[in-house]
Structure formats: structure tokens, C-alpha cells
Simulated assay, not measured.
Amino acid sequence: MFASGAATSAIAGSEDVVVEDAWARASIGVNRPGAAYMTIRNTGDEAVTLTGIRTRLAITPNIHQTSTNAEGVSSMVPAGEIEIAPGDAVSLEPGGLHVMLMRLQQPMAEGDDFSLRLDFSDGGEIVVEVPILGIAARGPEG
């Protein structure tokens, strides 16, 4: 199944997962990483766990967590698996959890899109079509 700005359901047992408002910013060539953002919603009554992501666009896609310490210094670290409680949602957004696209295979050009596969612990997956917005975009509306 596919998702973009609209919601879609997963397959293979993750049928209660919905992805909303996927988007990415255009990149500056391929020497800098890209990022993608979305909301992942669990509409079911059991927890689901996001275990990984894949895309042909980047050799090393990961979910990262940005945090800022008391001195105002920001850092990013891989987030690992993400559990989404029943009826809850996880927002992947600038300044927090986000998809980090390292070692881009091609530039992320405004107006293009790319496929991003989300893998879940029950074997389910969702393929999301992520639109690439302008380099200064602040959200899915541009």
C-alpha cells in the first residue's frame, strides 16, 4: 500500500497503522544527508513497533532523535526501534524524531518524490510515497 499526504493502512498484520502528512525537504546535492517527516498513527488496540526503514534514495536511512542540552547544544543519535501504543501516534518532525537519509544516491529535487518503506516487528510494512518540497519547507504544506 502507498501513502503520501493521505492516510493509508499497512499490510501483513499491521493493518491498524496509518501514515499521514509525509514530506521531505530538497537537498543540497548528495554530500549532505536528507531528512523526511511524517506522522505514524496506531489506530488498533495493540502496540506496534517500527523496526526499520528502507529506501533506494539513501544507503543508510535511519530514524534519528534530535535533542538539545541545557547549554543549547543540539545532537542527533539513532533512535532504534519505536513502539507506538494503541490509539497513539509518533510524529517524525524537524527538531525531534525524524528519518535521516545518509549517503544519498541522488539529489533530492523539489517536485520529485521517493518511496520509503517502514518495517514493523510483526512482519508488516508500509511503503510511503514522500513528496520533496522546497529546501525551506517547514511542514507538509510547504
Rank of each mutant, 00 (worst) to 15 (best):
R25E: 10
V90C: 09
A136I: 10
P107W: 03
R32N: 10
S27F: 01
V77F: 14
A89H: 13
I40W: 01
A109M: 14
S27N: 02
H98I: 01
R117M: 09
S9C: 08
F2Q: 13
V30H: 01
V127P: 00
E93S: 11
I82E: 10
T43D: 14
A7Q: 14
N31S: 15
A85S: 15
E110R: 12
V17K: 02
T55Y: 04
M76K: 14
T55G: 03
D88Y: 12
E81L: 09
I63H: 04
G29W: 07
R54V: 00
L50P: 05
V17E: 08
R117F: 00
V19N: 02
T60P: 01
A10H: 06
R25I: 04
I53E: 01
A137V: 03
G139T: 00
Q105C: 06
F114I: 00
T49Y: 07
H64K: 12
D119T: 09
D45G: 08
P33T: 03
T49F: 07
S74H: 09
A47K: 12
T60H: 11
P78S: 10
R56F: 08
R103H: 11
T8L: 08
S9P: 03
P33W: 02
D122R: 12
I126L: 14
H98E: 12
T68H: 08
A58H: 01
G34C: 01
G139Y: 00
N62E: 14
A35H: 10
A58M: 00
L57C: 04
P140G: 07
V19T: 11
N31T: 14
S9A: 14
Q65N: 10
A70S: 14
G72A: 07
I59F: 11
H64P: 02
M76H: 12
E71N: 14
G111Y: 04
L101A: 01
P94V: 07
G134F: 03
G96Y: 05
I126T: 06
I135H: 12
E46I: 12
V17Q: 08
I126Q: 11
S27R: 00
S121E: 15
M38V: 02
I59P: 00
V18W: 10
A22Y: 05
V77T: 15
T68S: 11
T43W: 07
E81K: 15
F2V: 11
P107T: 04
R138D: 13
M108C: 05
A36V: 02
A47C: 07
S91F: 15
S121T: 08
T39F: 00
T60L: 10
V127T: 14
T39W: 00
I59Q: 15
A24R: 01
I53R: 00
